[in-house]
Structure formats: structure tokens, C-alpha cells
């Protein structure tokens, strides 16, 4: 039991790496698609809409399996340079998680953009601030502040979602827990320890977001 703890802690690092990398990539992807979504180009708008529709509407496990097992069935892909990335379970997981969290993030940011009080933008316009500056000096910071509570939810969901990585041979926290169970046959004890580690990481995320929220609070 106690000897399994260092193994689980090591695996926690893999989980943390997976969740942080996919969240970082996901923020960029989400912002990109949110901007397309709120923009004027109809084609890009639709493209962004269907992207988030598909990735929010299908289970992440299915997405991961399509990317990992599905794409590997295509002979052409296997002989292309893409195989260098797709061969590795690690990158398959990152790609699936990024695409998934990107879809949710774009939706969170879109709704934040759309609920910005028109008054702020008009104030900027009346001061003669150029359009792109209005975006990243007024709209973007407000949208970020607005979407923080929803985004902290997404971070926690992603943390738990990374447990799916174990289904494609990655030894993350869940993967190692299952491995230890396969040799000790003690599912309850090991899963409780693994669950507590997840809970602790959630607590850290929660605290971190609370701090950022307080920092970004509007002056009253």
C-alpha cells in the first residue's frame, strides 16, 4: 500500500503535464475560434460553430479513440510525416484533449464576448481608440474576467478527463492506479488514494482561480 504511493505521485506528474499542456493549447485554440465566432465572416463563423458543436457533442473517449485507433488504420497517414506525432500515445492524447477543451473554451469566451456591456465599447469608440486596441484593451480583459468562473469549471473537468489517457496506454494517475490494482487486487484502497490526489489538484485549481478572480475584480 505505502510502497505504491511514490508510484502514484510520479504518475500525478504525468497527469499534471497532460492537463496543463492541453489547457494551454486549448486556450489559444478556444480564443481563436471565439474570435472567428464573433467575427463577420460567415464561413469562418459557421466553421467555428460546427467545430464546437462536434467536439462538445461527442464523448471525449470516442474522440480519443478515433484519433488514436481510428487514424492509425489509415495506411496513407502511417507512411506520412504525421505518423511521427500520431504514433505516440502521448501526443494523441494531447491532440484529443486540446481539441475538446478548445471547443468548450471557445464557447465560454464567445458568451463572454457577447455579454460585454455595449457602453464600454462605445466609450472607447467615443474616445477615438482604434478598433484593434478596443479589442485587446477593453473587450478581451472584460471577457476573461467574465469567463473565469465557467473556465475554472472547464479546468476541473479537463483534469478529470485526462484519466481517459490510461485507455491509450499512457501511465497517468488512473493508469498507474489500475496497474497497481492488477498486481495487488486492492481496488478500493488504491482508488481512494488516487481519488484524493485528484481532489487535491482540484483544490489547487480552485484556489488559484479564486486568487486570479480577486486580482481582476472591478474597482468599486
Amino acid at each position: 500500500m505505502i510502497s505504491s504511493f511514490p508510484k502514484l505521485l510520479n504518475a500525478t506528474l504525468v497527469t499534471l503535464k497532460l492537463v496543463s499542456l492541453s489547457l494551454i493549447f486549448g486556450i489559444f485554440l478556444g480564443t481563436f475560434f471565439a474570435i472567428l465566432r464573433t467575427g463577420k465572416n460567415k464561413f469562418l463563423k459557421n466553421f467555428s460553430y460546427y467545430y464546437s458543436y462536434v467536439f462538445r457533442g461527442t464523448p471525449m473517449l470516442v474522440q480519443l479513440f478515433i484519433i488514436y485507433f481510428g487514424l492509425a488504420q489509415i495506411e496513407y497517414l502511417r507512411s506520412s510525416f504525421l505518423w511521427i506525432i500520431l504514433k505516440e500515445p502521448y501526443w494523441c492524447a494531447i491532440i484529443a484533449f486540446t481539441l475538446n477543451t478548445g471547443a468548450y473554451t471557445s464557447e465560454i469566451l464567445r458568451s463572454a464576448f457577447e455579454t460585454i456591456d455595449k457602453g464600454y465599447i462605445e466609450a472607447g469608440q467615443s474616445l477615438g481608440i482604434p478598433k484593434n486596441k478596443i479589442f485587446y484593451k477593453i473587450k478581451f480583459p472584460i471577457a476573461i474576467r467574465q469567463s473565469l468562473p465557467a473556465y475554472s469549471n472547464e479546468m476541473i473537468l479537463m483534469l478529470k478527463g485526462t484519466s481517459l489517457a490510461s485507455t491509450v496506454t499512457l501511465m497517468d494517475l488512473t493508469g498507474v492506479a489500475k496497474f497497481i490494482i492488477s498486481t495487488t487486487f486492492k481496488p478500493i484502497e488504491i482508488f481512494i488514494v488516487a481519488g484524493s490526489i485528484y481532489l487535491f489538484i482540484t483544490f489547487l485549481i480552485h484556489t488559484f482561480v479564486k486568487l486570479v478572480e480577486r486580482k481582476l475584480e472591478y474597482p468599486k
Binding site: 485507433f69 492509425a72 502511417r78 504514433k87 500515445p89 496506454t169
Partner: peptide, 8 residues
């Protein structure tokens, strides 16, 4: 078997 055939 799938991953053996895929070459992973």
C-alpha cells in the same frame, strides 16, 4: 493487436 498492426 490493433497497435501491433499499426506499428505503434
Amino acid at each position: 493487436n490493433l497497435d501491433l498492426a499499426a506499428g505503434r
